[in-house]
Amino acid sequence: MALIEMKHLTKVFRSGRLGSRAHTAVDDVSLTIGPGETYGLMGESGCGKSTLGRMLTCLLPATSGQVLYDGRDLLRVGKRELHPYRRRVQMLFQHPDTSLNPRMTVLDSLREPFLLHDLPGRAHMDDVIREHIRAYGIQPELLERRASQVSGGQTQRIVLARIMLLQPEFIVLDEPTSMLDVSVQAQIMALLRDIQERTGVSYLLISHDLDLIRRSSHRIGIMRDGKLLEQGETGAVLDSPTHPYTRSLINSFAYMRD
C-alpha cells in the first residue's frame, strides 16, 4: 500500500518577458513510496530533484500532475485543509547554514512547531524539547546558542529533531549530508536510520551520491533532465540496469571506489 503517490508530476518554470522562456524542471514523474520505506532518488545536480521535493511538500505549486496522500490530492486542497498535512509531510534541506534563522536561538527554533500546531505538551514545551533532543545527540548547552554559532552537522540534528516534534509520516531528505564532512555524514545517516526504525517514517532520500543511496534505500529511482529514467528495488536496478545512463553512472561510481 502506498503512503504517498505521485502521478505525472510536472513542473515548468517560466522566465523572461511574460514567461516567454519555459524550462521543464520535472517532467512527468510518477512514483510511489510505502510506509516505512526509503526511496532513493539519484540524479546529477540540476536534474530537478529539489524541485520534485518542494512540490511534494507543497512549497512549490506543480504545473500538472497529482500528489496523492491519504487518498487526497495535496496539490488541490485549500490552505486551511492543507494545514494538518503540514505536520505529516516534512522536508530536511541541503544547506545547514541557512536552515535555521540566524537571529533566533536554537531553543526558539525548536519552539516553532508548538506555535504552529496543537502538539501535546504545548503548555510546558521547553521541558518537552529538553527531553526530546536527547535522542538526537543535541547537547542541552546548544539550546541557548544562536543558529550562526552551530556547526552544520549539529544544525541537521536540530532541524531533524524539530521535524520529529511534528511526528511526520513522510520526510523529504534533500541531500541532507552533502555539505558535511564524511564522518559527520555517517553519523547523520545512522541517526536517520535509527529514527526510521523507531517511528516507521518514510523517506524520499535525494542525493547525487550513488553510494549513499545504495546503502540506505529500499528502492531507487534514477533521474535525468527532469525525467525518471528507471526505478525499482535497489539491488535489481544496480545489478541489471536497463538504461544506458544508469549503467554509466554505476560504472563511474565503481571506478571511484577502486
Partner: peptide, 25 residues
C-alpha cells in the same frame, strides 16, 4: 533561505513568516 521554506513546510502563514523570520533579519 531554507529557514523560510522550513517554516512554510511547518504550515506558517505569510504574516507569521514576515514577523518572525523576515523582519528580524
Amino acid at each position: 533561505q531554507h529557514y523560510i521554506e522550513g517554516a512554510r513546510a511547518m504550515g506558517a502563514g505569510g504574516l507569521y513568516i514576515v514577523r518572525r523570520h523576515i523582519l528580524p533579519n
